[in-house]
Write a protein that binds this DNA or RNA. Structure first.
Lengths: 136, 136
DNA sequence: CATAATCCTATAAAATCTATGGGATTAAAA
DNA sequence: TTTTAATCCCATAGATTTTATAGGATTATG
């Protein structure tokens, strides 16, 4: 199960991506329309901005807008940023690999191959789906 | 990411399934060989027994053995028992459905279809993999 | 009756998730 | 220059879930 943070982040990003070129939107507006707690969304938006997906203007008339093109933002990237590993176990993670304490030899692990398969199936979707695919 | 509980449970179940017909094994032995905390494993084994996958004998010479045939135990079942929903979000779960608070109309939700796809990919693996497939 | 195993309930410790508060900063408009 | 309205930033609180652990009850064997 993905966290609410990731779900909120994806929905907010899609929301911004639906706007016109460099059109701005307030956090408060997104929060209301997407039913996301305002302050929680604020921290998520900040993270998306710092990672280069969004840009913002402060002050009156300010707001957020999309910095990266929606067809260049894969779900994988956002998932990894907000959620962490896509893999079902750390020992098959491509970007967040960690050795299992309970496993001497991964090749002999009874569930290792299964986990690899699951990882690859999920990745094949998230790698090939972009924010642009979710706008409509 | 799956919990350690689910990982431990799967590995323990496979461990028991590798034994001969109605051969018994102690929790302590599994715990040691699979590097699982003994008391934690105890509670997991109890859950697997209550769900009908394992049987046990108390007292001296006791232990656990497989009750259900390994080719009749899908990973889906065990996952749902120990972990809960397989779906990435509650609103696309087949067995643990819950409506999202932030979503009036699922048909209009921007990430709903994506989540359905992920669910189906994972399910297609877990539904079609059985404990018997993981013995070797 | 001693021993060795599971059974059962409670609970504690740690980690993670889900926010919330409050003020600092910035920019535009009045 | 002042007011207003937005993001920025840090701290932390509350809730939930995960990961165990403790300790005794129960049961079966020899």
């Amino acid at each position: 199960m993905i966290s609410k943070k990731t779900k909120y982040g994806l929905k907010a990003l899609i929301h911004v991506a639906r706007l016109g070129y460099q059109e701005r939107v307030h956090i408060a507006a997104i929060a209301e329309k997407e039913s996301i707690p305002r302050k929680f969304l604020e921290s998520i938006m900040l993270e998306l901005r710092k990672a280069g997906y969004l840009a913002s203007r402060k002050g009156k008339g300010g707001g957020y807008y999309l910095l990266k093109k929606p067809d260049k933002i894969s779900i994988s990237e956002i998932y990894r940023l907000l959620e962490g590993p896509i893999a079902p176990v750390p020992c098959v993670s491509l970007n967040f690999y960690e050795k299992c304490e309970d496993c001497d030899d991964e090749a002999k692990c009874t569930i290792h191959l299964l986990m690899v398969q699951v990882r690859d199936r999920i990745l094949s979707i998230y790698n090939n789906t972009f924010i642009s695919d979710l706008i409509n």
